[in-house]
Design a protein around this nucleic acid. Structure first.
Lengths: 347, 347
DNA sequence: CTGAAAGCGCTTACAG
DNA sequence: CTGAAAGCGCTTACAG
């Protein structure tokens, strides 16, 4: 491996000069710069970003920890972060906590050891409060992604309250009064927000709360399945089902299929997040579509913004943390009623 | 930020000793190690991986460049690589070439500057030959993933020939003689291999090659669409359609739908790679399912193996490059005929 | 059993 | 306009 010293000696200049032509950081006579460039070419020199990072105490890299790399929505967010980060000339270090707080803590630790300039974090379901404090205490800029919280942190996610209420109204307009609302693990903020919005919608619309089945705060999928099956089999059957994530929708659809219930005649159906290429398949599912790629892009850009502020070091006052929520689009399709309309709403 | 020097002075020992207790690299008296540990705790010291990497000329990181982060199959592979790499105690640097050879070259350059210990590369469609040579010339261990080639390199991908032939036989068994085979951009090795296998199958089965429509070597999706529409509308219509990737399948299905053709009665349908949660939807699609996650895991493990060999530095002879092909599973479903069977085959 | 010191490959004041 | 030198935070022979 060739070093700057080798380039310098070949070009007959000092290593300061080589460094300066490489980084364009001070004027160098065209003639000498030419010699340096030639020497770089001849030795096929490549700058050592590790040594550079060490000297500058800046790695030009950001860490991203997602809670569930298997979920298509998170894959899209990773894609968005990668896209934005590359455009900004930064490198992305990727880790996956697999919804495990311990692995999350380890990943944070590993990335901080690697001295990433900043961190984007989609927190695991049982994520410990103190990981956020720890990162901030370190002075490393942090952006929370998708899994938001009430703390004073920069965060980027989606709007959940308004779309949920709109979705419920849509179903009530179709005459539905009895819902099963499958929220799953409400330690996940996104799911909790959707559940809360559902409860709020019930109140707003003067619907009988006791007639609703809300499956929430349940950790294991098979328990959720059981509760859903029971809700569908017992008493007066609910006429509308809302699933709060892609996985939940998939499991719910399977259960519905097993019972030979037709959508939307036997039961109306809507889901959050939804499936890829969903317009190709029957039944067409009404979906609250999350702009996942854009969430990733926005998270990366917000982080980059903080990094720039920090590097400039101008403002003595800490900037106030920002919470950004992007708006989902509700794709109305046949699974939630006979009227098929398709209006992106603005929240 | 606290450094080893600060820990050392607080503990009243040398920095060598601190380093050695941290890395367990030589015996330290229990009593002194206790003091060191206490000092580390008190200062909440965190090792600086950048400085460590620089000194050791080893970063304990690997770079991954995928050609199309939007494709679900690649998202799965990324997931697999991340999983394996984390288990091995390495960090993953992720980049996306977006099927653009220039961006691919830039990404390689950026990762080599960062001194990754090794590189996993799913090459872009028009990938230049010399990127592989360049990396190998550098002495950086390299594993090609999914997009394989004929060079002497370590590579991990999927078996394409045998499954393709088996799929075609299955369709011929159902009585099909006229195919449209949508291969797309055959600069992509995976697609080219599937196309070649189709041609081979035609010969093996003594089918009239001139009765087949092969859409291949076409760069733009709209041109592919046009050729497919023409094939479906003109002359005696093909009775079976095979799409070589998820995107191609999605576009083909749309065209089929637009013409109100029913699967499998009007035309039989099968696809490679396929859709997530595909068992939930009608029509159920016969799919040659790629073990994408496992491909990622295998690529990472092969790379780790090479890194270990290199670190040991034992063998004076270079180990011969390995090509691993994992076997897809063919999911036979109703879209390719009335007989629904579901047999994972072994190739 | 432990410490002093060289050195990894850069950047960046400091001099001239 | 350019160079000599300090130093970023570690690891690792080398001594004792």
């Amino acid at each position: 491996m060739t070093t700057m010293a080798m380039v310098a000696s070949l070009a007959g200049v000092s290593i300061s000069t080589v460094s300066h032509v490489l980084n364009g950081t001070r004027h160098v006579e065209p003639e000498t710069r030419e010699k340096v460039l030639k020497a770089i070419e001849a030795t096929s020199y490549r700058q050592d970003a590790v040594a550079r990072a060490m000297r500058r105490s800046q790695t030009d890299s950001v860490g991203l920890i997602v809670s569930d790399a298997g979920e298509p929505a998170f894959a899209e967010m990773v894609h968005g972060v990668e896209h934005a980060v590359a455009r900004l000339g930064l490198t992305l270090l990727l880790a996956n906590s697999a919804e495990d707080p311990d692995r999350e803590a380890q990943a944070v630790e590993a990335l901080l050891e690697r001295r990433v300039d900043g961190l984007i974090l989609a927190r695991a379901a049982g994520s410990r409060q103190d990981v956020v404090d720890g990162i901030q205490g370190e002075g490393t800029p942090l952006v929370l992604m998708d899994r938001l919280c009430g703390m004073r942190v920069d965060q980027v996610g989606v709007e959940n309250r308004l779309p949920t209420i709109e979705l419920v109204k849509h179903l009530v307009d179709q005459g539905h009064q009895r819902f099963v609302f499958v929220a799953g693990d409400c330690r996940v903020p996104t799911l909790r927000e959707r559940r809360d919005a559902f409860v709020e919608a019930m109140a707003q619309l003067n619907l009988d709360a006791s007639a609703q089945t809300i499956i929430a705060d349940v950790p294991a999928f098979d328990v959720i399945d059981g509760q859903l099956e029971q809700a569908l089999d017992a008493g007066p059957r609910p006429t509308a089902l809302i699933a709060c994530s892609t996985v939940l929708a998939a499991r719910a659809l399977k259960i519905v299929q097993n019972r030979n219930l037709q959508l939307p005649t036997d039961i109306a159906f809507a889901t959050f997040d939804g499936f890829a290429y969903s317009d190709l398949f029957t039944p067409q599912l009404t979906t609250v579509r999350q702009p996942a790629f854009e969430v990733g892009v926005a998270a990366a850009e917000l982080l980059a913004h903080r990094l720039a502020d920090k590097a400039r070091g101008s403002s003595p006052v800490r900037l106030a943390p920002t919470t950004t929520r992007l708006s989902p689009t509700i794709e109305y399709r046949s699974s939630s009623g006979t009227t098929v309309r398709m209006t992106p709403s603005n929240f």
